[in-house]
Amino acid sequence: MKAFKWSFIIAIFAYLYLPIGILVINSFNASKYGYEWKGFTFEWYAKLWENEALTQAFLNSLLVASLAATAATLIGTLMALALHRYRFPLKATASSLLFIVMMSPDIVLAITFLVIFIALGIQLGFWSLLIAHITFCLPFVVITVYAQLKGFDKYLLEAAQDLGASESRIFRLIILPLVFPAIVAGWLLSFTLSLDDVIISSFVTGPSFEILPIRVFSMVKVGVSPEVNVLATLLLAISLFLVTLSTLLLRRKH
């Protein structure tokens, strides 16, 4: 039974990691088409370096993912706080809207974003992309932080309030340190979702600001491009580095 369990787990992970393994191996493969191994090379890494449009799209993707994750974390934390601590009109509507964002298929969200940007006259490009990414990450931050807020001792806050601490002081000195792990988790989740997104980005960005999935989509539709393998490998390495870094930072903090 135990052997069966582990072979099942391994089979699932083999399925999930096989395509990624192929990408990483092919990034060093001298064969252009990647169907067989023709020797080790760094050629594609050099090629990528020369491909300015692709590297620019790659950097843009990382930029948007980090900015969107940071903004979504800031806004989402405040939202979670508002939903948890304050009473205000339309509160139920606000949580339903967050729920809608979480459950809506990307394609539907993509359409709604496109329509509102056109209606507001916002040029499709960096800002529209950023706003869209922040918005679809928000519910995940709110849920994570909200769960943490629910978990801690509310007398702590009441005591602080009775002793005359202002709301922003309570937030800074008590709430923020206590929900910090949830905030980090929310940031990572947002960063991941933003980096992985294809559908929403295809709708809300314009030629002025190209990001990876759009660039790659046009490349792989016309043919094979080994630079894409290199990009995938680099993305993986950078993300792993970021996560290791944040785990280490978190560990030092506690």
Binding site: P19, I22, L23, D196, V198, P213, L235
Partner: peptide, 22 residues
């Protein structure tokens, strides 16, 4: 380990599936 694949963008991973099923 379930989350890690997301960092290589799902479009790029889908493209890799072509190399498996082609």
């Amino acid at each position: 380990l379930m989350i890690v694949p997301f960092w290589t963008n799902s479009l790029i991973r889908t493209y890799a599936i072509k190399l498996i099923l082609g």
